[in-house]
Design a protein around this nucleic acid. Structure first.
Lengths: 351, 351
DNA sequence: CTGAAAGCGCTTACAG
DNA sequence: CTGAAAGCGCTTACAG
């Protein structure tokens, strides 16, 4: 039984191949090799080709640590969000990924799970690695100093999805108050008057803005906003599902629920179905985000498209601009959401 | 209107703080500072405390590139899977994350979307960064040479979820043939005789093993395996949903479907509901993976728990062992799956 | 168009 | 227990 010796690979290489290995073999200087490999016009075509060819055949591996130590650019961009496995971030991350790929930046991803300590550890790691910049959806309670600390140590930051008061950096997020207003007004226009808001937290800018948008829409329509119609907390399918009992137990039961996001909405619809009622018939439900699965839920979910792709793309571009020395406004950009009406919202059964 | 100058931070620092800054300030050598910061017993307690205290107050940031260039350990472990946003990988990634966190390794995540080129680019990046190791769920068609190339250049690899013939590295995956057998036998024991298999691909070891497990279970029970009862392809909710039409259009319609994974099963159940039938009554459905949402689907999904947490934990541990010089067997470890029976599988209505 | 040499910020023998 | 010095593998003025 032969095991793997963990360092066998390293040892198997007769000698680590480096720039000087190539330089020696071809009788040129390391400076020339370095320039040639990076396609500098300072090197003659023929020389460059010889060098690149040789590098390829001997299996040269560029040492980015050494280069980065010298140039103080690492080609690394950090991205930290609450939870990368949350489908809400999926589209954002994909569009960031495709922007960064194009600029050959390596994309270092992390979750902070809304724990400030985790977020700090990650930023610290980025600083230690000499990362070029960071895109973050800040954890609940992030003080502006945490972001400015990064900035002051040469790690420019761009925020997505949530803002942090007092942090002078660019922010890209959906216009949450407006978006939730679209959903609320849609339900009102269908004839609903008792509308609950399920999920979300007041500890984030997003949460506050969405709740405010709901309240404003209700009040504008002259409808009552009862405190017991607000179910703060849930942000996952599971939590939405578990909230169903409390929701259905309300006397004067609402005929519709504006949900914090699609996950909560789908969880709630599952809960309603499990209780023997029919979501989208007995109780109208709206979501937020327009995840892929909103369209295939049963019933198909009426929801608010949140411009995720746009948020990711623009955040990445602005960060790349900053890395390239372009001056950038440290202001908040709100992306306009759109209502996507499907089958989960209908006229109220009773009146 | 004042923009942000992207390099202001760097410039604002009077001088970059490094080991020698601390050494000069305290009148010791950089060697002592280096040792003290890493808690070496070679340094006297009092000296160490003075040094650490001073480092903290002046805001010293450890330069990992420099350290790594010197030591040729980077503290980075790469993890590459088909799609990190796929909930199947969520639990695996979380358990890898918690193992690696404990060893203070930075966790560099990437998708390859089953594209060999993307996977190669990522491995190349890891080599350039001097990463210590990589955990990968190999892309479809990965040649063993790609993995051995990493190994030979000092990047030890551990595989998860899929194996690659000819690659002499440790592999951790669920026992797919056994697991799908659990689901198939469960349906057979309920009285189903016409059982379809929906989703999956023959291009991965997982796909082949699951299909084989289904076929073997059917044959052992003396049941017919019709080619048209196999719906290869779908691996997402959307794709499962879209497959429903073809499934329901079969003459001699199966009364049950063994699905490739929970996503396909949930998509199929949504499709069945959309067609006016009741999943779990008219047609029994089983999933695979036991994602969180399997339990809250309507009806709750009977599925096979795949040992994701175990796969991630053991893969991370073995990689860490290899990094610490422990010899490790380059063999495949199959984790035993378990059947979780819920409401989506019942006795067939017709006979 | 090319080369010789300094230096990025650490860690590690080695000497004391 | 501490210090002086070499070196990790690049890139960048500088000189020719």
């Amino acid at each position: 039984m032969s095991g793997i010796c963990p360092k066998a690979g390293r040892r198997a290489l007769a000698q680590k191949i480096k720039l000087s290995t190539i330089a020696d073999a071809l009788g040129v200087s390391t400076a020339t090799v370095s320039l040639a490999l990076r396609d500098s016009p300072l090197v003659a075509d023929a020389t460059r080709q010889r060098i690149k060819e040789h590098a390829r055949t001997i299996g040269y591996i560029y040492n980015r640590r050494a280069a980065s130590l010298r140039t103080s650019r690492s080609g690394i961009v950090g991205v930290v969000v609450h939870d990368i496995m949350n489908p809400f971030f999926a589209e954002i991350l994909r569009s960031i990924e495709s922007e960064l790929d194009r600029s050959r930046q390596t994309f270092l991803l992390s979750n902070h799970y809304d724990q400030l300590e985790k977020q700090r550890t990650f930023i610290d790691t980025l600083l230690q690695l000499g990362a070029d910049g960071v895109i973050m959806s800040p954890a609940i309670g992030t003080p502006p100093e945490d972001i400015m600390l990064a900035e002051e140590n040469g790690l420019p930051a761009v925020l997505i999805a949530r803002s942090v008061d007092g942090a002078r950096v660019p922010v890209f997020r959906g216009d949450d108050a407006y978006g939730i207003g679209l959903a609320t007004n849609h339900l009102i226009s269908l004839g609903h008057t008792r509308i609950a808001m399920v999920g979300g937290t007041d500890h984030t800018s997003t949460g506050r803005d969405r709740y405010r948008g709901y309240v404003v829409a209700m009040q504008k329509a002259g409808l009552e906003v009862k405190p017991e119609w607000r179910f703060p907390g849930p942000r996952t399918k599971q939590a939405g599902f578990e909230m169903t009992g409390a929701f259905l137990a309300l006397k004067d039961k609402p005929t519709a629920a504006v949900c914090w996001n699609d996950l909560v909405a789908i969880g709630l619809m599952n809960g309603i179905a499990r209780a023997g009622l029919t979501p989208g018939v007995d109780i109208s439900v709206t979501g937020y985000d327009d995840l892929e699965e909103a369209a295939i839920a049963t019933p198909a979910l009426t929801t608010v498209w949140n411009g995720q792709r746009e948020v990711g793309r623009r955040a990445a571009r602005v960060l790349l601009d900053r890395l390239n020395g372009v001056e950038v406004d440290p202001t908040q950009v709100l992306i306009k959401p759109e209502l996507h009406v499907r089958q989960s919202s209908v006229r109220p059964v009773e009146r």
